[in-house]
Nucleic acid binder design. Structure first.
Length: 569
RNA sequence: UGGGGUAUAGUGUAAUGGUAGCACAAUUGAUUCUGGUUCAAUUUGUCCGGGUUCAAAUCCUGGUACCCCAGCCA
């Protein structure tokens, strides 16, 4: 018993699918092989829910010696599928950090083989050509509680079936006039077993096979064959296919070919967003978001643009676990994962989103001092940089209050605070416009506190970020909030749907932001922490004269929490 | 009695007859040149009823609730 080897040592718990794989390896069920696959249909963009499946399938393959995971496009329906999706899906899987090596496949590559298998099934008496139209087939199928009845075409001879099927293939019949059906059991309590359709006639051109085929296989017929042909060992899919498993098994048993094990797990659901392809597409088409890669939407391309890292997404997929029951994960966990990663990896920089001008009255007019600033306190290797300080600079509007409440530690009349990496300053005067709004502050500074520490050891309650006015780069910053105001957007009032829960404030654009000059060389998708504000990245809309920046996530903000609580009182 | 699944803190997930643990969230406190990070602590749980057992989240039994299935979509 090799089991003893690990006894006593606490093995990390694994999900039920990894447990099955481990057991299969132990019993040598598949000659020790582990071959999984990720089989997207190229009819839409990948989202975080797909990432769960990708990380599961590629992850299991990577964790097992000699394991591999195929990327296979399940392109059996030419009406909805397009090449552009094939490309974006590959980009996304690769960006997430996975590699399928030479194992890139297309269901359409197997159309010829599938046709032969279908003929074989006909010859075995397990399939027949049915002339019923779609409506009739539905009628004959019965209901959930009533058995169906046999099609009048169910007992055609093998010869007639083979001949008709060949003519279907040759395009002799009109769309919808005939189908090939499996001959199983019209009284089965499982609707999928009531003589399911294997082939439909579609005079539609396919994105890869062009006009070669006039019949196309249905999912149930095609998918098991694809898995079988590729030698897949574990065919992992989502819960709604559980009812299809008997059919998956039936086809492969009747054909007596390699028979992978289908295993189902629950889809990912996330609070404050929607996950279905249909709804995501609807949001784009109706203009609620700009495009499929809008940073508010949980597509992989949207998250990439928002500033998410592949590491954070993979970490998230590891943490959510794998199970067989529907659950909705708190989006706070996703946000935690991105903060955790970005805290360790992103350089800190100073930027002022809502600028308030400050003048240091006792600071020399034309003086500029280049202050040393740490790039990343979590990573000593990230080094330091110089940040210019001068007489006039900007601070955040919300870092000043004329009449500060008890728990407000920042700047106010007569108060002293630290300017990060620079000096202690004390507010001496407040300038207002005609409407009484604060438009400018005057301060005095203590030259002895250069760098940010007082030689007399005096403390200050708060440290502010700032950007020197004459050195500042202008930027447009896009702030994002949850796309929906409700945790579960589908919970809508009578007659309404998820769109009624859209958050009107999910995007907030600030066009007059000031960032420190070190950002002048920033490139597309570069990520930063703006000190005290959050994590940000350079957006694709950036042009030569216009720096556009997305907020990926805020920092955890205890001051905001305090304010929220005070508000409620 | 149509069939197939599933129930563990607020959320997600471990514990495979032997102390119900972990993460997120929440709440305290310590540290801090980011109201960040880090650290420490606290609150909250086995769907319900019966049974077996020294011992049940786990086994048996009877309920309840939720999800999926009547595409020539996947």
């Amino acid at each position: 018993m090799q089991k003893n080897e690990n006894e006593g040592s606490k093995e990390p718990s694994v999900d039920f699918i990894r447990a099955i794989v481990a057991e299969d390896i132990r019993t040598n069920k598949w000659d020790g092989k582990v071959i999984t696959r990720f089989p997207p249909e190229p009819n839409g963009f990948l989202h975080i829910g797909h990432a769960k499946s990708i990380c599961l399938n590629f992850g299991i393959a990577a964790e097992n010696k000699g394991g591999r995971c195929h990327l296979r496009f399940d392109d059996t329906n030419p009406v909805t599928e397009e090449d552009r999706y094939v490309n974006s899906i590959q980009d996304d899987v690769r960006w997430l950090g996975w590699d399928w090596g030479e194992h890139l496949y297309y269901a359409s590559d197997y159309f010829g083989k599938m046709y032969e298998y279908a003929v074989e099934l006909i010859k075995k008496g397990f399939a027949y050509v049915c002339d019923l139209d779609a409506g009739q087939i539905r009628e004959y199928r019965g209901t959930l509680t009533k058995p169906g009845k046999d099609s009048p075409y169910r007992n055609r001879s093998v010869e007639e079936n083979v001949a008709l099927f060949m003519r279907m293939k040759d395009g002799e019949f009109k769309d919808g006039s005939r189908v090939l059906r499996a001959k199983i059991d019209m009284a089965s309590p499982n609707m999928n077993m009531r003589d399911p359709v294997m082939y439909r006639i579609l005079h539609a051109d396919h994105h890869r096979t062009g006009s070669k085929w006039r019949i196309y296989p249905t999912y149930d017929w095609a998918h098991g064959l694809e898995d079988s042909i590729e030698g897949i060992t574990h065919s992992i899919c989502t819960l709604e296919f559980e009812n299809h498993r008997p059919l998956y098994d039936w086809y492969l048993d009747k054909l007596e070919v390699h028979h992978p094990q289908q295993i189902e797990f629950a889809r990912l659901e996330l609070t404050y967003t929607v996950m279905s392809k249909r709804k995501l597409l609807q949001l784009v088409e109706e203009g609620h978001v700009k495009d499929c890669d809008d940073p508010r939407v949980p597509t992989i391309s949207g998250m990439r643009r928002r500033g998410y890292s592949p590491e954070a997404i993979r970490q998230f997929c590891r943490r959510i676990g794998i199970n067989k029951f529907n659950s909705t994960i708190d989006i706070a966990l996703l946000e935690h994962c991105i903060r955790e990663d970005l805290n360790k990896t992103s350089n800190r920089v100073m930027a002022v989103l809502r600028p308030l001008k400050v003048v240091i009255d006792n600071y020399p007019e034309d003086e500029v001092e280049w202050m040393d600033a740490v790039n990343n306190p979590e990573d000593p290797d990230a080094g330091t940089r110089k940040v210019p300080f001068s007489k006039i600079f900007y601070i955040e509007q919300e870092d000043f209050m004329e009449d500060p409440p008890k728990k407000f530690f920042r700047l106010g009349p007569g108060r002293e605070v630290r300017l990060r990496y620079a000096y202690f300053v004390t507010c001496t005067d407040v300038v207002k416009d005609d409407d009484g709004r604060v438009v400018e502050l005057h301060c005095s500074y203590d030259p002895a506190t250069r760098g940010g520490n007082a030689p007399d050891g005096r403390k200050v309650k708060s440290t502010l970020h700032w950007v020197s006015a004459s050195h500042a780069l202008r930027a447009e910053v896009r702030l994002y909030d949850h796309l929906f105001t409700k945790e579960l957007p589908d919970e809508a009032a009578n007659g309404e749907d998820f769109r009624s829960n859209l958050n009107p404030k999910s995007l907030h654009v600030l066009s007059n932001c000031m960032v420190e000059p070190s950002l002048k060389d920033a490139r597309l998708l570069d990520r930063f922490q703006f000190e005290r504000l959050g994590y940000f990245c350079v957006d694709a809309d950036t042009t030569e004269g216009n720096l556009v920046i997305n907020r990926t996530a805020t920092l955890r903000d205890t001051w905001a929490k305090i304010q929220k609580k005070e508000h409620k009182k």
